[in-house]
Design a protein around this nucleic acid. Structure first.
Lengths: 251, 251
DNA sequence: CGACCCATTGAGAGCATTCAACGCGTGTGG
DNA sequence: CCACACGCGTTGAATGCTCTCAATGGGTCG
């Protein structure tokens, strides 16, 4: 933990260096040659660390940059025409913010830091130019976009059929997996979002989220202390998430 | 109608010509110059018209081509590990099939024609090369990908919070809008999918779909004859879809 | 200390699912 | 030509999950 925060302070003070970034294998430049990474690195703008609740981008403002999360976490809150606020995404280290803004040319939701968070800024226009010259970067970006389409579509269609119990299990396992891929423990992690945020993301009320988490604890699937989560039995949790929740008639 | 089928027959017999396609302004080459369209056109492979229930691609098989729908419609069925089948997408004329397959290198669901359907095949590798040389095509493809991310994410997160009544209203309005953009009537259209398909897509049972459609008809919002739909009051339907369905507490 | 946000708990109501049955049209085979 | 199976859509009744509303307690910040 001390090591991590030291790296971050250095990064935000001295400018970011992709070659020494511990997220290298997860971020956009993962397939690039040494020279290409240097060029990619040259695009990036320094960006001061965000405090809790601070906004990285505001819904509707012109899109100019993607952001890569270095540490911390953020949520994307989209306000509908009828003034309803939906949490449409969470972002963890190594993930790209703003992919949904490219088409409209404006950010599609307000991006809020859930805790102290640092990001890399990637101005889109020069990034696109570089994509023209570097096929592997172009493919990497398109793959990230494509992966996002599949992931979101599949995950959300599945959730539409599920009970609260299964929705939360899917959510916790997805988070666990994202942490695992980034070298953190898949069993123990800190979730900086509130129950209301989770509920909004999953289409549940905060009360139902709380009650369901309580049920997990009674079944010894999960231990929670505040916002520290500990998954006690990944196998059983997986089986729970795979079960279709409703005893659904086969199509 | 006679005009349409004549054009399609010609296209599938003589090879496809983007310059005379009535979907030109909606498809990928919409921003290209005359020469670039010609080059784009050269990539395309002829593809025989699909019959009803015929499969365009099978889940898990290697990804090689995108497909643009010229006429007809298709559904994407994704089978989960627990052998559950979910309808994760519908495709109408002018839309691209396979965007979610780029990342994994394999089709993420089986693509089935819902009626007699013709498509253009776009081999991905040469398309990607062309993206390197033609910035406007590259941007167009990235915008399509980005739009898809935003559209899916937003639409589905909204649906997660909604009752059956509102889910179906959103669905019908989205379909109506897609037809309108393609020059067809937004009030009257043919939906080739079954109630079960719609239910699977929206996370509802076929019974609930039927009952809700019946309720619309009783309110004079909708008229249905078999699979012909007629939206009688778009304004009221819109208000119904905007209403949050559940009298949801503001976050 | 009070205001406020967050999380929890309880009780009641509503909406969608589940299960079962029926009608209809189509295609198949006797 | 008819019998039958099958897919699709519809209808009815009952169960159950989740929302709603209300109240409480803990924590943080001004």
């Amino acid at each position: 933990m001390a090591f991590k925060s030291r790296m971050l302070r250095k990064a935000s003070q001295d400018g970011v260096d992709c070659r020494t970034c511990h997220l290298g294998s997860l971020c956009l430049p993962k397939e690039l040659s040494r020279d290409e990474v240097a060029e990619f690195n040259g695009l990036m703008c320094p960006r001061p660390t965000l405090g809790k609740q601070e906004r990285l981008a505001v819904q509707g403002t012109p899109f100019a940059s993607l952001f890569a999360v270095r540490s911390g976490s953020l949520k994307q809150v989209t306000t509908t025409e009828s003034n309803e606020r939906l949490v449409t995404a969470f972002f963890l280290p190594g993930e790209l913010v703003g992919l949904d803004a490219i088409a409209a040319g404006a950010y599609q939701g307000t991006i809020v830091a859930l805790e102290s968070t640092s990001v890399c800024e990637l101005p889109y226009s020069p990034l696109d130019d570089l994509c023209g010259r570097v096929p592997s970067l172009r493919r990497q970006l398109q793959q990230t976009l494509s992966q996002e389409i599949h992931g979101e579509r599949f995950k959300l269609h599945r959730l539409l059929h599920r009970t609260a119990e299964v929705r939360l299990a899917c959510f916790l396992l997805a988070i666990s997996d994202r942490f695992r891929l980034r070298g953190y423990s898949p069993h123990t992690f800190h979730l900086a979002m509130s129950r209301a945020d989770i509920g909004s993301y999953l289409g549940l009320t905060p009360e139902t989220v709380g009650r369901t988490l309580l049920a997990y604890q009674r079944q010894a699937l999960l231990a929670i202390q505040g916002r520290e989560f500990q998954l006690l039995d990944l196998g059983r949790m997986n089986r729970l998430a795979e079960a279709n929740g409703r005893r659904y008639r086969k199509v």
